[in-house]
């Protein structure tokens, strides 16, 4: 890397390209995507299923299943090291140590026949030389940190003895045990109930700010984004279509897809809301990644599409300060609002 990366940048992803070779053709799951995460910052990646948000995360972890997947271009720089150039052993020493990941389903991500404490110890001792006694103490401390009541007793228990919310807390404890520089949370609360979701999100944000961890939050829920992230990137059909600070994005979304998403979620009605308003639909469906239209992938569903959209893919321009959008008509939209 010849370019200087700002000192506080934890992760810098440049022109990442991940493809899948499948029997129905080439899937460009992540197509030329760049983003960075700073210390203590939360970056949300938003999009619908198949937009490439989860594959981006797996690419950073170098956990894309091969075959059929392959990272074919770009760089993933974590604290100055390009992860894509590391050998497998070096990559293993990074995973779970400098980068951790938490998944949607806390039950399947924990080993059912291992005690919670032992699972955290395993994560710690893989990367740090500590005595088993010291590691157990750390495990209990981690459980206390994620506010699991009676951590000494819970450490002795097995995953099935914990409730869904507790398990996700244990997962977070495990992920943060080595104080990683970057935490990737892939739909961490989607499987949880709203009241538990509120607790877990509050916990993640609080811990991340206290420990200075960079956080990538992958979600489809714009409410979660608005409440937790500082910056947001919106993905559609493998490409980054918009990037902005959370305030700017929600105030003036500049990509018609982002606008469509925001309009299509029903709001919890306030007392003065009009009854039975039709939701705004985005017509059609997400295109198949093997048969992307020429030009902008969103054009066939876009009300604002003009001829140019169907022929040429728009560049990702900084339409407003710190607000990028890949749309030929973003400039007009910025002026109009």
């Amino acid at each position: 890397m010849s370019e200087a990366i700002p000192a506080e940048t934890v992760l810098d992803v440049k022109n990442l390209q991940t493809v899948f070779f499948t029997n129905s053709g080439l899937f460009r799951a992540v197509d030329d995507v760049s983003f960075s995460v700073r210390r203590g910052e939360t970056l949300a990646i938003v999009g619908e299923s198949g937009c490439g948000k989860s594959v981006s995360a797996l690419s950073i972890m170098r956990l894309v299943p091969d075959p059929p997947g392959r990272i074919v271009g770009g760089s993933v720089t974590l604290e100055g090291t390009d992860l894509l150039k590391l050998d497998d052993a070096a990559m293993r020493s990074i995973r779970g140590n400098r980068i951790s990941m938490i998944f949607q389903e806390p039950m399947t991500s924990l080993n059912p026949v291992m005690r919670i404490g032992d699972q955290i110890i395993e994560a710690v001792r893989l990367h740090q030389k500590v005595s088993s006694k010291e590691a157990w103490k750390q495990a209990v401390d981690m459980l206390r940190l994620v506010r699991i009541p009676e951590p000494e007793r819970r450490a002795q228990e097995y995953p099935h003895q914990l409730s869904g919310g507790m398990r996700q807390r244990a997962m977070i404890a495990m992920a943060l045990a080595c104080r990683p520089a970057l935490l990737i949370a892939d739909e961490p609360t989607t499987a949880l109930d709203v009241t538990i979701q509120a607790q877990i999100l509050a916990l993640i944000v609080d811990l991340q700010q206290r420990l200075g961890t960079g956080l990538i939050l992958i979600t489809h829920d714009l409410g979660v984004v608005a409440q937790t992230a500082q910056r947001v990137i919106v993905m559609y059909a493998g490409k980054k279509v918009e990037e902005a600070t959370v305030e700017s994005l929600f105030e003036t979304p500049l990509h018609p897809y982002t606008r469509g998403l925001m309009a299509s979620i029903p709001a919890v009605p306030s007392p003065d809301a009009k009854a039975d308003v039709r939701l705004v639909e985005i017509p059609g469906m997400v295109p198949s990644l093997t048969r992307l239209p020429p030009g902008c992938a969103f054009a066939p569903r876009c009300k604002l599409a003009i001829d140019r959209c169907r022929q040429e893919y728009p560049p990702l321009d900084e339409v407003k300060s710190n607000h990028w959008a890949a749309c030929w008509r973003a400039g007009e939209m910025a002026e109009a609002s």
Binding site: T195, Q197, A198, A202, V225, A226, Q227, T228, F250, V268
Partner: peptide, 14 residues
């Protein structure tokens, strides 16, 4: 507990 899709809406403690 429902997260509101507006960053200006203040997050209430659970």
């Amino acid at each position: 507990s429902v997260p509101i899709a507006d960053p200006k809406a203040k997050r209430t403690a659970p």
